[in-house]
Simulated assay, not measured.
Amino acid sequence: MTKAPFTGKGERASDLLGLIHSDVCGPMNTQARGGFQYFITFTDDFSRYGYIYLMRQSEALEKFKEFKNELTPPGTPQWNGVSE
Rank of each mutant, 00 (worst) to 15 (best):
M1F: 13
T2P: 13
T2A: 14
T2C: 06
K3I: 11
K3Y: 08
A4E: 10
P5Q: 06
P5E: 13
F6C: 10
T7Y: 06
T7G: 12
G8T: 07
G8K: 11
K9E: 11
G10P: 10
G10D: 05
E11C: 04
R12N: 08
R12F: 06
R12D: 05
A13L: 06
A13C: 08
A13Y: 06
S14Q: 08
S14P: 04
S14T: 12
S14M: 11
L16T: 12
L19A: 10
L19S: 07
L19D: 03
L19F: 02
I20Q: 02
S22A: 07
S22W: 10
S22K: 06
S22C: 13
D23K: 05
D23M: 07
D23P: 01
C25H: 05
G26R: 05
M28V: 07
M28C: 12
T30Q: 09
T30L: 09
Q31S: 15
A32R: 07
R33M: 11
G34F: 03
G35M: 04
G35L: 06
G35N: 07
F36S: 03
F36D: 01
F36Y: 14
Q37N: 13
Y38K: 00
Y38F: 15
F39M: 08
I40N: 00
T41F: 01
T41H: 01
F42E: 06
T43D: 02
D45G: 11
F46I: 08
F46G: 03
S47N: 01
R48H: 13
Y49F: 15
G50H: 04
G50V: 09
G50W: 01
Y51R: 04
Y51A: 14
I52M: 15
L54R: 07
L54G: 08
M55Q: 00
M55D: 00
M55C: 09
R56T: 13
R56Q: 15
R56K: 15
Q57T: 15
Q57Y: 13
Q57W: 00
Q57R: 14
S58W: 02
S58E: 11
E59T: 14
A60W: 12
A60M: 04
A60S: 13
L61F: 00
L61A: 14
E62L: 14
K63E: 06
F64A: 07
K65C: 10
K65S: 00
E66S: 11
E66Q: 12
E66L: 15
E66D: 10
E66M: 09
E66K: 08
F67E: 04
K68G: 01
N69V: 00
N69S: 12
N69D: 04
N69R: 05
E70Q: 13
E70R: 12
L71T: 06
L71P: 00
T72R: 00
P73F: 02
P73L: 11
P73N: 02
P74M: 05
P74G: 07
G75C: 06
G75P: 05
G75M: 09
G75Y: 00
T76I: 02
P77S: 06
P77V: 05
G81A: 11
V82M: 09
V82G: 05
V82S: 08
S83Y: 11
E84S: 09
